[in-house]
């Protein structure tokens, strides 16, 4: 009993909807069941066994939407063995519950707090420097990496089952994450300098200087625990106030 390649591709397509019905009790349970259902239909022609199989995948599941693809692939690996009678029916669920936390941590730590913000910062800098083509190019590169890894994890999970853990370890994602974050911070600093230039050209040197000061001191305030949205209102008022003050001082001197 194996799942045909066409069905695997369908499962991968459906895995892109993992969080469509995210809910408090089961979190991504509906998304996971939706994704794996075509594979279960292929493995269990008997209605009762298919019903049982889908029921076990309606239980709690939550992971990072990208790295969950590895678990989805690995779960099909285990379901094939359950269908052949080589493994107990509890194995796929045990596999999911064992890997979901660690792979969520990898996904959050690499994709959500390193790779995506890095490309976001790069797109923002590029957009300010050269306009929309930079946004298109940056997003294209991000998604090349994103989809290649997402599909690769799904395929390797399906081929190797438990062996996916060693594969993910070899990717050394936490090490890359660290470098990407440092590079991202660098891009943010450069953007602040670009704002000095932009502000000076568009609205007078003072506007550029205000942007630079906001970037330098805002960072300290945010690290100190200032809340983001209120800080935005405060800094806008402070910036306008500084400009008013400077104009007055300049006018009276």
């Amino acid at each position: 009993m194996t799942v045909p390649t066409r069905t695997l591709l369908r499962v991968f397509w459906r895995s892109l909807f993992l969080q469509a019905a995210w809910n408090r009790r089961g979190m991504q349970n509906l998304g996971f069941a939706y994704a794996i259902d075509p594979a279960l239909a292929a493995l269990y022609p008997e209605p009762e066994r298919r019903r049982e199989a889908l029921a076990r995948h309606l239980g709690f599941f939550n992971c990072h939407p990208y790295t969950a693809a590895a678990i989805l692939g690995g779960t099909i690996y285990h379901e094939e063995r359950v269908a052949r009678g080589e493994e107990p029916a509890g194995n796929p669920v045990l596999y999911k519950s064992t890997l979901q936390g660690p792979l969520a941590a990898i996904g959050d730590g690499f994709f959500w707090t390193a790779l995506r913000p890095f490309f976001g910062a790069l797109a923002a800098l590029g957009a300010l420097a050269v306009g929309w083509p930079a946004v298109v190019i940056t997003l294209a590169i991000y998604n090349l990496v994103h989809l290649a890894l997402r599909y690769g994890l799904f395929r390797d999970g399906y081929r190797k089952g438990d062996g996916i853990v060693a594969d993910v370890a070899r990717l050394a994602l936490p090490v890359f994450a660290d470098r990407l974050r440092v590079a991202g911070a660098f891009v943010c600093g450069l953007t602040a300098a670009l704002l000095l230039w932009r502000g000076a050209l568009q609205a007078g040197f003072l506007s550029g200087a205000v942007a630079l000061a906001a970037a330098a001191f805002g960072y300290l305030a945010l690290l100190g625990g200032a809340r983001l949205l209120p800080a935005a209102y405060v800094i806008v008022v402070a910036g306008v106030g500084a400009a008013l003050f400077a104009a007055r001082w300049h006018g009276s001197s």
């Binding site: 991202g184 953007t191 602040a192 609205a203 960072y219 305030a221 690290l223 935005a232 306008v240």
Partner: peptide
């Protein structure tokens, strides 16, 4: 100037996310 002040804060917020 208010917009540039906000944009500067945005850089700081981005750096904090890293």
């Amino acid at each position: 100037t208010g917009w540039f002040a906000f944009s500067g804060l945005a850089c700081a917020s981005g750096a904090k996310a890293m």
